[in-house]
Design a protein around this nucleic acid. Structure first.
Lengths: 129, 129
DNA sequence: CCCTTTTGTTTACATCTGTAATCAAATTAT
DNA sequence: ATAATTTGATTACAGATGTAAACAAAAGGG
């Protein structure tokens, strides 16, 4: 029963983005940052943090008057989980189907094409090794 | 104000999957299909259909006693929209970031690698043309 | 030490989602 | 024609989500 099975709502993503950039942050710092980025009131941010603490997405360390928060899940970790969900639901689990569908509407920049080639090449090297 | 700005919940996706496979379908056919696939009661399916009709995802044609439904949005259309949302939220809008992140955990099958190469090659041809 | 500000915690509430039960009109069978 | 079944529509209700006000304890200023 580890805490891997956490999923985040869009609003919770915004909170995590802050904490993934820098952590720990005090409640004050977070309310300021999110008032700025999302226009949220203090209450909103703190309510979100409470819920996220309850479900194990963040840890709140209350020491010395002020409470500070740090993430308990890595960005990669949950990005992965959400990606799997999404791919399964929308593209039947097929990454190449996603790519082909996406590129039919939005042509990729040269930079992205190059990056994708690099990824594929590297993967083949690993496979052959 | 066309109906493009529709997003589907996971449950609603299941309904659409049926209608994208074959359409139109009567309420009866849909309740049967979704009882089978998802274990839903008749009420559940019809409630979903009602909501989806209200938000313009499907059209219900009531003619000759029985009501039948057909999709008003294409699968590609909303797959695209959801993909953009997802990429923006999780991968900062970058497709290559998604691919690289994904492949670090789940190595792709040879088939998928080949498909991806094909997609890239085709895209370059289009670009050069 | 009192008054003000900051903080942490509780409570609130509308909307959305999943999941149905119920009810009433229409259809079908006997 | 009447009873049984099917069907469309309405109502229900709990849990998730977005968004915040209220309240109370703590900290800081004078």
């Amino acid at each position: 029963m580890d805490g891997k099975n956490i999923s985040l709502t869009p609003a919770e993503w915004s909170v995590m983005e802050c904490l993934w950039e820098r952590s720990p942050m005090t409640g004050r710092e977070l309310t300021d940052a999110l008032r700025e980025r999302c226009g949220w009131s203090r209450s909103t941010t703190l309510t979100l943090l409470g819920r996220m603490e309850a479900k194990g997405a963040v840890a709140g360390d209350m020491s010395g008057g002020k409470k500070s928060f740090r993430p308990l899940v890595g960005r990669d970790e949950i990005a992965m989980k959400e990606t799997e969900d999404f791919l399964g639901r929308v593209y039947n689990g097929s990454l190449s189907l996603l790519v082909s569908s996406f590129t039919q509407k939005q042509p990729l920049s040269k930079k992205e094409i190059d990056e994708l080639y690099d990824i594929l090449k590297k993967m083949e090297e690993d496979r052959d090794a």
